[in-house]
Design a protein around this nucleic acid. Structure first.
Length: 182
DNA sequence: CTCGGGATGCGT
DNA sequence: CGCATCCCGAGG
Protein backbone atom coordinates (compact mmCIF):
# COMPACT_ATOMS: atom_id res chain seq x y z
CA UNK A 1 0.00 0.00 0.00
CA UNK A 2 1.16 3.46 -0.92
CA UNK A 3 -0.22 6.45 1.01
CA UNK A 4 -1.60 9.19 -1.24
CA UNK A 5 0.43 12.41 -1.12
CA UNK A 6 -0.61 16.07 -1.03
CA UNK A 7 -0.23 16.41 -4.76
CA UNK A 8 -2.92 13.79 -5.35
CA UNK A 9 -5.52 15.77 -3.39
CA UNK A 10 -4.56 19.04 -5.04
CA UNK A 11 -5.86 17.87 -8.42
CA UNK A 12 -9.14 19.01 -9.96
CA UNK A 13 -12.05 17.79 -7.87
CA UNK A 14 -13.85 15.71 -10.51
CA UNK A 15 -10.59 13.96 -11.39
CA UNK A 16 -9.71 13.34 -7.74
CA UNK A 17 -13.19 11.96 -7.11
CA UNK A 18 -12.82 9.36 -9.85
CA UNK A 19 -9.25 8.58 -8.88
CA UNK A 20 -10.36 7.84 -5.31
CA UNK A 21 -12.46 4.90 -6.52
CA UNK A 22 -10.57 1.70 -5.72
CA UNK A 23 -8.36 3.40 -3.11
CA UNK A 24 -8.20 2.16 0.48
CA UNK A 25 -9.44 4.30 3.35
CA UNK A 26 -7.50 3.41 6.52
CA UNK A 27 -8.24 4.39 10.12
CA UNK A 28 -6.30 2.90 13.01
CA UNK A 29 -8.63 2.41 15.97
CA UNK A 30 -7.17 0.90 19.17
CA UNK A 31 -4.07 -0.04 17.13
CA UNK A 32 -6.17 -2.07 14.71
CA UNK A 33 -6.43 -0.82 11.13
CA UNK A 34 -9.95 -0.53 9.79
CA UNK A 35 -9.71 -0.65 6.01
CA UNK A 36 -12.33 -0.17 3.31
CA UNK A 37 -12.10 0.09 -0.47
CA UNK A 38 -13.79 3.26 -1.77
CA UNK A 39 -16.47 2.32 -4.30
CA UNK A 40 -18.74 5.40 -4.41
CA UNK A 41 -18.05 9.16 -4.16
CA UNK A 42 -19.56 12.54 -5.01
CA UNK A 43 -17.76 15.72 -6.13
CA UNK A 44 -18.71 19.12 -4.65
CA UNK A 45 -17.36 21.92 -6.78
CA UNK A 46 -17.09 24.94 -4.50
CA UNK A 47 -19.06 28.10 -3.57
CA UNK A 48 -20.87 28.31 -6.90
CA UNK A 49 -22.13 24.72 -6.50
CA UNK A 50 -25.50 25.17 -4.76
CA UNK A 51 -25.39 21.61 -3.41
CA UNK A 52 -22.08 22.23 -1.61
CA UNK A 53 -21.89 23.41 1.99
CA UNK A 54 -19.24 25.87 0.80
CA UNK A 55 -21.95 27.72 -1.17
CA UNK A 56 -22.69 29.44 2.17
CA UNK A 57 -19.17 30.87 2.14
CA UNK A 58 -16.59 30.52 4.90
CA UNK A 59 -18.36 29.77 8.19
CA UNK A 60 -17.39 27.93 11.37
CA UNK A 61 -18.71 24.76 9.77
CA UNK A 62 -17.21 25.13 6.28
CA UNK A 63 -13.83 26.46 7.44
CA UNK A 64 -12.12 23.13 6.72
CA UNK A 65 -13.48 23.02 3.17
CA UNK A 66 -11.63 26.24 2.44
CA UNK A 67 -8.40 24.95 3.93
CA UNK A 68 -5.58 22.92 2.36
CA UNK A 69 -6.24 19.80 0.28
CA UNK A 70 -5.87 16.38 1.82
CA UNK A 71 -7.72 17.15 5.05
CA UNK A 72 -10.97 15.51 6.21
CA UNK A 73 -14.17 17.55 6.36
CA UNK A 74 -16.55 15.65 8.67
CA UNK A 75 -19.99 17.04 9.50
CA UNK A 76 -23.03 15.88 11.39
CA UNK A 77 -26.30 15.42 9.53
CA UNK A 78 -29.89 15.05 10.75
CA UNK A 79 -28.62 15.28 14.29
CA UNK A 80 -27.40 11.70 14.44
CA UNK A 81 -25.17 10.76 11.52
CA UNK A 82 -21.75 11.82 10.23
CA UNK A 83 -20.45 12.18 6.66
CA UNK A 84 -16.82 12.42 5.56
CA UNK A 85 -15.34 14.45 2.73
CA UNK A 86 -11.82 14.84 1.42
CA UNK A 87 -10.81 18.45 0.73
CA UNK A 88 -9.41 18.94 -2.79
CA UNK A 89 -7.53 21.56 -4.84
CA UNK A 90 -6.71 24.01 -2.02
CA UNK A 91 -8.57 26.86 -0.31
CA UNK A 92 -11.27 26.57 -2.96
CA UNK A 93 -14.19 25.13 -0.99
CA UNK A 94 -14.10 21.95 -3.08
CA UNK A 95 -14.35 18.42 -1.68
CA UNK A 96 -15.24 14.80 -2.40
CA UNK A 97 -17.87 13.04 -0.27
CA UNK A 98 -17.07 9.38 0.46
CA UNK A 99 -20.35 7.47 0.06
CA UNK A 100 -19.59 3.76 0.22
CA UNK A 101 -16.86 1.23 0.99
CA UNK A 102 -16.26 -2.43 0.29
CA UNK A 103 -15.03 -3.92 3.60
CA UNK A 104 -11.39 -5.07 3.47
CA UNK A 105 -10.28 -5.42 7.10
CA UNK A 106 -11.84 -5.04 10.55
CA UNK A 107 -15.08 -3.59 9.18
CA UNK A 108 -18.74 -4.60 9.66
CA UNK A 109 -20.71 -5.51 6.54
CA UNK A 110 -22.87 -2.42 6.45
CA UNK A 111 -20.77 0.28 4.80
CA UNK A 112 -23.08 1.35 1.95
CA UNK A 113 -23.98 5.02 2.42
CA UNK A 114 -22.03 7.98 3.80
CA UNK A 115 -23.31 7.69 7.38
CA UNK A 116 -22.83 3.92 7.57
CA UNK A 117 -19.33 4.41 6.17
CA UNK A 118 -18.46 6.77 9.03
CA UNK A 119 -20.01 4.50 11.63
CA UNK A 120 -18.07 1.48 10.32
CA UNK A 121 -14.78 3.39 10.20
CA UNK A 122 -15.44 5.07 13.57
CA UNK A 123 -15.28 8.56 12.07
CA UNK A 124 -17.02 11.44 13.84
CA UNK A 125 -16.46 15.10 14.66
CA UNK A 126 -13.06 14.31 16.17
CA UNK A 127 -11.73 13.60 12.69
CA UNK A 128 -12.93 16.94 11.31
CA UNK A 129 -9.94 18.87 10.00
CA UNK A 130 -7.51 15.96 10.33
CA UNK A 131 -4.71 15.75 7.81
CA UNK A 132 -4.97 12.57 5.73
CA UNK A 133 -1.19 12.38 5.56
CA UNK A 134 -1.18 11.30 9.22
CA UNK A 135 -0.03 7.91 10.49
CA UNK A 136 -3.40 6.69 11.72
CA UNK A 137 -5.90 8.14 9.24
CA UNK A 138 -5.14 8.19 5.52
CA UNK A 139 -6.00 6.90 2.05
CA UNK A 140 -3.65 4.56 0.18
CA UNK A 141 -3.28 3.04 -3.25
CA UNK A 142 -3.45 -0.77 -2.95
CA UNK A 143 -0.61 -2.84 -4.38
CA UNK A 144 -2.99 -4.36 -6.87
CA UNK A 145 -6.45 -3.21 -7.88
CA UNK A 146 -8.89 -5.03 -10.16
CA UNK A 147 -9.93 -3.04 -13.22
CA UNK A 148 -13.43 -1.59 -13.15
CA UNK A 149 -15.77 0.71 -15.04
CA UNK A 150 -16.86 4.05 -13.54
CA UNK A 151 -20.55 5.00 -13.66
CA UNK A 152 -21.59 8.71 -13.56
CA UNK A 153 -24.93 9.74 -12.09
CA UNK A 154 -26.58 12.80 -10.46
CA UNK A 155 -25.76 13.27 -6.78
CA UNK A 156 -28.08 11.92 -4.09
CA UNK A 157 -30.28 14.08 -1.87
CA UNK A 158 -29.53 17.48 -3.41
CA UNK A 159 -32.82 18.22 -5.17
CA UNK A 160 -32.84 21.70 -3.61
CA UNK A 161 -29.79 22.68 -5.67
CA UNK A 162 -31.59 23.59 -8.91
CA UNK A 163 -29.58 22.87 -12.05
CA UNK A 164 -26.68 21.69 -9.93
CA UNK A 165 -28.76 18.71 -8.87
CA UNK A 166 -28.68 17.46 -12.46
CA UNK A 167 -24.90 17.47 -12.80
CA UNK A 168 -23.32 14.03 -13.09
CA UNK A 169 -21.05 14.33 -10.06
CA UNK A 170 -21.68 11.00 -8.38
CA UNK A 171 -19.23 8.26 -9.38
CA UNK A 172 -19.25 4.61 -8.49
CA UNK A 173 -17.74 1.26 -9.42
CA UNK A 174 -20.09 -0.49 -11.82
CA UNK A 175 -21.66 -3.62 -10.42
CA UNK A 176 -20.18 -3.32 -6.94
CA UNK A 177 -22.69 -4.63 -4.36
CA UNK A 178 -21.64 -2.06 -1.74
CA UNK A 179 -22.73 0.95 -3.79
CA UNK A 180 -25.69 2.68 -2.03
CA UNK A 181 -29.19 2.71 -3.55
CA UNK A 182 -28.42 0.25 -6.35
C1' DC B 1 -32.81 34.69 20.30
C1' DT B 2 -35.93 31.69 17.46
C1' DC B 3 -36.71 28.77 13.69
C1' DG B 4 -36.57 25.96 9.32
C1' DG B 5 -34.35 22.30 7.33
C1' DG B 6 -30.65 19.07 6.18
C1' DA B 7 -24.87 15.60 1.15
C1' DT B 8 -29.24 9.73 6.10
C1' DG B 9 -30.94 5.33 7.48
C1' DC B 10 -34.54 2.52 9.25
C1' DG B 11 -38.93 0.81 10.08
C1' DT B 12 -43.86 0.83 8.43
C1' DC C 1 -43.76 7.83 4.02
C1' DG C 2 -42.57 9.26 8.95
C1' DC C 3 -39.28 9.71 12.26
C1' DA C 4 -35.03 10.34 15.18
C1' DT C 5 -32.26 14.35 16.95
C1' DC C 6 -28.92 18.34 16.72
C1' DC C 7 -26.74 22.12 14.95
C1' DC C 8 -26.06 25.28 11.30
C1' DG C 9 -27.10 29.61 9.20
C1' DA C 10 -30.49 33.19 8.38
C1' DG C 11 -33.24 36.68 10.12
C1' DG C 12 -35.40 39.64 13.86
Amino acid sequence: MNKLDRNFYEGKTEAVAQALLGMYLVHHVDARPRIGRIVEVEAYLGPQDLAAHSSKGVTARTRVMFGPAGHAYVYQIYGLHYCMNVVTEGATGTAVLLRALEPVENLPERTQGPALLCKAMQIDRRQNGMDLLSETFYIARPDESPSFTIVRRPRIGVDYAGQWARRLLRFYVRGNPFVSRA
